[in-house]
Design a protein around this nucleic acid. Structure first.
Lengths: 133, 133
DNA sequence: GCCTGATTTTACTTTTACGTAAATTTTTTG
DNA sequence: CAAAAAATTTACGTAAAAGTAAAATCAGGC
């Protein structure tokens, strides 16, 4: 059995529905060089690899990365490990990005901890008032 | 002994240096109602509480939250737990924000895992080449 | 008390990430 | 094949988050 729904190609509107964005947005990402759908005539055809790139892009957006930063991240995945000097550079870039992400995770954990405190206070106050949750 | 460097007031330039932003940025946050420094004449004086708010703002920015979203988060902390209905609403808002943050953390963990893989491949390739890290 | 540098206000500009509209294909469907 | 629906190109518009410039004002040191 093949994996579920492994389509050859996706149309632009299929992808706008899946990711909840407009055609303008997807074409914008193409203009920015983040994806390169092939063409049949003028119409764009998106391969599964384009779809995976879109998933990466959306994830980057959720994390507050700019298009430029998302481009960097994508290029890290693309880079074919070549010559030794390049490899060292690539590792440097990996380390940088990971540090950024670790900082973000710290920020998130702190914020969640604070929100937990607020919630606890609320629940305590509600218990005092004799209110059910 | 008092805690280290507990100043009464900070000037705008002290804060720009500490947070690595411009005066324009700090005034912009004031215009947006995120902070409310007091005035001596026309000059702004920032209290430790304003400084703490700026820390919250910067953290929000690092996480890719918009000014509007940062305003929401700040207002969660400010909200004095009042009446029962309000408390329930506040808890709802806490839960929403926390869900957003948990999603972000998932995104981060996935991205870090992928970066780790890239790094491993690089290191493997370098070992093949007989190159030291 | 004046000079120098910091601060403020006002207003126009810029960049990013798309939105929107119009005119033109292109594709699909009856 | 004709009509409708979908996709494309081109171009201008916009909101958010500041940048920047100019002119005026203020504060602190000598």
């Amino acid at each position: 059995m093949k994996s579920p729904e492994q389509k050859q190609f996706y149309t632009i509107t299929e992808l706008t529905r899946e990711f909840g964005v407009s055609t303008r947005t997807i074409r914008f990402y193409e203009d920015e060089g983040l994806i390169q759908p092939i063409r049949r005539g003028r119409t764009r055809l998106f391969k599964p690899s384009d779809r995976r790139l879109l998933m990466l892009i959306m994830r980057g957006k959720r994390l507050g990365f700019s298009i430029a930063e998302i481009r960097e991240i994508i290029s890290i995945y693309k880079e074919p490990p070549g010559e030794s000097g390049q490899l060292k550079l690539l590792i440097q870039r990996v380390i940088e990005k990971r540090d950024q992400l670790l900082q973000k995770r710290t920020d998130i954990d702190e914020t969640i901890a604070e929100l937990d405190q607020v919630e606890e206070q609320c629940l305590g106050r509600m218990a005092e008032l004799g209110v059910g949750t």
